[in-house]
Amino acid sequence: MAVVTIHDHELDSDIHNLYDVVIYSKQVKTLLTTCPSMVSSWISDVEKIHRRRLSRLIVGLDVEWRPSFSRYQNPVATLQICVGHRCLIFQLIHADSIPASLSDFLANANYSFVGVGIGADIEKLAEDHGLTVRNAVDLGDLAAREYDDPGMKNRGLKDLARIVRGMEIEKPKRITMGRWDNRWLTCEQVQYACVDAFVSFEIGKKLITGA
């Protein structure tokens, strides 16, 4: 099983914090925030870093919300996006507003947003927060074509990570089913959210570019 570690920078701020999540020796710089302007800065930084490949940018995407045990579904609490070794966890549920930069980023047709079961995630993002993801790509569908195996469409992230990337990851039920609407997420939640987005990015990069 992969050794995943997290370092909490413990910033003196009530709107953001920084973490270093190490996954298979790869350090992913992770920003957790409720602040729209910090989201805009993160997007700007990522687009500058990857300016030479903006015509074909790959973005790992995932969302989390507090589970409901009734017909009512709680709204999306967090949006996670990852490009390379940088991850953003935006606490939508506690944000005063959604920056136009994020709407524009998600609506960019040149960017491929990859995830497992991403169709349901982007539908919920649109319903709960009015965010539209223009070019969503389901990793199960990609893998089914790449491996010529229709059964891959039904594989979860854990299986795809192992098959495509040789990465063993954990998805503890107690975290999956946790309080994602809390104002302060735990280190375990931040690590979980980062791993999902980063691994989605890594799988997408392999299936789309072969790298």
Score class of each variant (00 low, 15 high):
Val114Met: 02
Cys82Asp: 11
Leu157Glu: 05
Asp62Tyr: 11
Lys171Glu: 05
His94Pro: 12
Ile89Gln: 08
Asp159Leu: 00
Ala120Gly: 02
Leu160Ile: 02
Ser101Ala: 11
Asn108Tyr: 06
Cys87Gln: 05
Lys173Ile: 08
Gln91Tyr: 03
Tyr111Asn: 00
Ile118Ala: 07
Arg134Gln: 09
Ala100Lys: 13
Gln73Trp: 06
Glu170Met: 13
Val76Asp: 07
Ser97Trp: 06
Gly84Cys: 11
Tyr147Trp: 12
Pro172Ser: 01
Arg155Glu: 14
Asp149Lys: 12
Met167Ala: 00
Asp104Leu: 08
His129Ile: 01
Ala120Ile: 04
Ile89Thr: 07
Arg66Ile: 10
Gly151Tyr: 07
Leu92Gly: 05
Ile89Val: 11
Ala161Gly: 05
Pro172Glu: 01
Cys87Val: 00
Ile58Cys: 02
Tyr111Gly: 02
Pro172Ile: 01
Thr176Glu: 02
Ala144Asp: 15
Leu106Gln: 04
Ser55Trp: 07
His94Arg: 10
Asp141Arg: 14
Val114Asp: 06
Glu146Pro: 03
Trp65Ile: 04
Lys171Met: 14
Ala120Ser: 06
Arg165Asn: 10
Leu157Asn: 01
Ala161Val: 03
Lys124Arg: 15
His94Cys: 11
Phe113Lys: 01
Ile175Thr: 10
Asn154Arg: 14
Pro172Trp: 01
Leu88Thr: 02
Cys82Trp: 09
Met152Glu: 11
Val164Lys: 12
Phe69Asp: 14
Ile169Gln: 00
Leu125Ala: 12
